[in-house]
Design a protein around this nucleic acid. Structure first.
Lengths: 203, 203
DNA sequence: CCTACCGATCGGTAGG
DNA sequence: CCTACCGATCGGTAGG
């Protein structure tokens, strides 16, 4: 299991804050250029340090990616656990999960990057561990979809299709959304949900 | 404007075939590991050559990416030109375009990779040129959506939402689809189209 | 937190 | 199509 690296336990509050700053700056670079194309010199420049000084806060480039990926995997899985306990029907559960995906995309650069794009650069054994967490999340999402199909709430089809279509359908938001857009994040959320649940067609 | 590099004009048919093999192998590696994480030594190994020998077929790593990206941009734009000349309504045009996106995702590794993920590693001035082509395609797709909204065919909303949601919604297919899956590519196409046009909800 | 520096690997070339 | 090799850059360390 993943847990916070040992040395984090021995860091002062100020050092933890600085570490967070380094990790978040890295996330932004990984999103913009990709993990492999981001050098430690790029990151150092972004946080106004020399490359060697980064290693006072982090152990390695791969550790940064690892922390981002697993923090987000755990966040999504915790949300899933809460959603599973809701009393609502499948449609309501899917709506809550989609709203979570959209909110996180508009608010946190690390989330979509970690969950969609850069996790493949994790090294073993972390890659396998991450893939297992991701698969767990997918399977639980799929179970809700299949429940909705049996209920007659959802159209019946191969469950992989709505599963991956819904996941992917919100992927553009984290690239596109900026807080100064004419649309608020709440409006965006409502319209994307409506589009996915009811389709683009007007009846 | 992009055109085939000069030396391609002086290559024999066999050399062109080999070049195509190199480029397609590169596309597969770029899709699997990303452009930056793919070394010319990786590519050489994939085509059973030494790294230096690759340069008999291609000029540089960046040239490979450039050819893949622009070949696909032009293909999508040509299809758009054909679709615009159809007599159908907006819904039919969008359906044709979505079917194109899905078909290409199940049949050609280069397409989605180029159009979604790795084009950002293009160098100037090609990056700007590619972005302009992509924007042209988006704008023409958007025009069809807006026509459909005015017609009453589509739900009325900020046109960026259906535009990018539809683009993204088919992105998972090229990672997921393998010809030996239980679902045929035609079935997949029909179900994805139905989901996006009519929504996941059963009425 | 920096200067100085390491071995490894990168894309690519010379010459045959 | 290969061997041999180049300068640049990579992630990271030693020592202060």
């Amino acid at each position: 299991m993943f847990n916070h690296s040992l040395e984090t336990l021995f860091m002062s509050e100020a050092e933890k804050t600085k570490k967070q700053f380094v990790v978040e700056s890295a996330a932004r670079l990984f999103r913009d250029k990709g993990y492999s194309a981001t050098s430690m010199r790029d990151l150092a420049q972004a946080v106004d340090l020399k490359a060697s000084s980064l290693y006072n806060y982090i152990q390695s480039k791969s550790e940064i990616l690892r922390e981002i990926c697993f923090a987000n995997a755990h966040r999504f899985i915790e949300s899933m656990t809460q959603v599973e306990q809701l009393s609502g029907n499948a449609r309501e559960k899917i709506e809550v999960l989609l709203r979570l995906h959209i909110q996180v995309a508009t608010q946190d650069v690390t989330s979509v990057m970690a969950f969609n794009d850069e996790w493949r650069h994790l090294e073993e054994p972390f890659l396998s561990e991450f893939v297992a967490l991701r698969r767990d999340y997918e399977n639980r999402f799929r179970a809700i979809i299949e429940q909705g199909m049996r209920n007659g709430e959802f159209k019946v089809m191969d469950s992989s299709i709505p599963l991956f279509t819904l996941f992917s359908a919100v992927r553009w938001i984290h690239d596109w959304y900026k807080p100064n857009r004419s649309i608020t994040s709440a409006e965006l959320e409502n319209e994307v949900i409506r589009l996915l649940l009811e389709g683009i067609q007007e009846f």
